[in-house]
């Protein structure tokens, strides 16, 4: 089990650039769907907009509210981004292209997403503001709930592969991508992934109609930028994990190299995440909870039961 140290720098730079591009791409794609133009003034197709946004955020006054818990308030956005970047360590981009080929890779991903929750919670708590606190409370309940099925929904894949290792999971899909036998697992993982990334329609922790901006109401300047980067990183990471677990990772016909296949599939899911935001309204908080516990959990358990039974029968 060797560590690909060479991969670390390109990966961190790539992920950060990806998050930056996604800020612009999301606005363009949303505008296209809503029959608007979106940012189109700076450079071709408005690409310069992301540089302008970056300069604006860097030069803004970095303000910490006097009533906030200073240390925790400053560290919370860092915790979000750090946990998300750590999650990228186990993603196999192509055969041999990974930072670490951990035997418990899938569990490592779950561990990192569950640690990212703390950034959101502590940001809400340290802001010492009632809207932030409510946003933090909501995200705690939402993420703990959806983490349960997120973990359970991918156990079907683990049963079929017989391993938590990400590269082995991809190799096991050479004949058939797992989204066909594991269609229920895939749907539940997709929904749980959106909820974990607290993206629309499940962005209740930051519902702007009720909570100003939820847990990041008090954040500005680079700290706000880090919170947003964390959100986009989580979109990219979730898409990459969905592709790895259910859509054959780097596998694809030979006319394109594996890394291109992986990027294309991941890009498709990122676009899906963005378009979903324009398509579905936000549910009420109790609807979100009952969807989770009353529908998704039974579906996941059923999927696990059937998968286990089929694998046992096939073994004879």
């Amino acid at each position: 089990m060797e560590v690909g140290f060479i991969m670390i720098l390109p990966l961190v730079v790539g992920a950060m650039l990806g998050a930056l591009v996604l800020v612009w791409w999301e606005r363009r794609l949303l505008a296209f769907l809503q029959d608007r133009l979106g940012p189109n003034r700076l450079g071709p197709f408005g690409v310069g907009q992301m540089v302008a946004d970056l300069i604006k955020l860097i030069t803004k006054h970095d303000w910490v509210p006097p009533f906030a818990d200073r240390v925790v308030f400053t560290l919370a956005p860092v915790a979000i981004v750090a946990a998300m970047l750590m999650g990228f360590a186990i993603v196999p981009f192509a055969p041999g292209w990974h930072i670490i080929d951990l035997n418990i890779g899938l569990l490592f991903f779950l561990a990192m997403t569950s640690l990212a929750v703390y950034g959101v919670l502590l940001a809400g708590l340290a802001s010492n503001n009632k809207y932030s606190l409510l946003g933090g409370l909501r995200s705690a309940a939402q993420m703990v709930t959806y983490e349960v099925f997120m973990g359970l929904s991918i156990m079907g894949v683990v049963i079929l592969t017989g391993s938590f290792n990400m590269s082995e999971i991809v190799r096991a899909q050479e004949d058939l991508w797992f989204f066909i036998p594991q269609v229920l697992g895939f749907v539940v993982f997709l929904i749980a992934g959106i909820a974990e990334a607290h993206r629309a329609p499940f962005d209740l922790p930051e519902a702007e109609h009720e909570l100003v901006a939820g847990f990041h109401t008090e954040y500005s300047g680079m700290k706000f930028a880090l919170v947003m980067v964390g959100e986009y990183l989580s979109v990219i990471l979730t898409s990459a994990i969905i592709v790895t677990l259910f859509f054959g990772g780097w596998l694809g016909p030979d006319f394109l190299p594996p890394i291109i296949w992986f990027s294309l599939k991941t890009g498709l899911f990122i676009c899906f995440f963005v378009l979903l935001r324009a398509a579905i309204p936000r549910p009420r908080y109790d609807q979100l909870m009952s969807l989770g516990w009353k529908i998704l959990l039974p579906i996941t358990l059923l999927n696990l039961l059937v998968t286990g039974a089929v694998v046992l029968l096939a073994k004879g």
């Binding site: 418990i104 779950l110 640690l115 929750v117 703390y118 919670l121 708590l125 409370l137 703990v144 983490e147």
Partner: peptide, 28 residues
Amino acid sequence: APFAAALEVVIYAGAIMVLFLFVVMMLN
């Protein structure tokens, strides 16, 4: 014991402590 290590992070640090923090936030 890599499996125990992963479960320690996922369950203790990732789920149970979130609930503790949740209670602390509720008590305000």
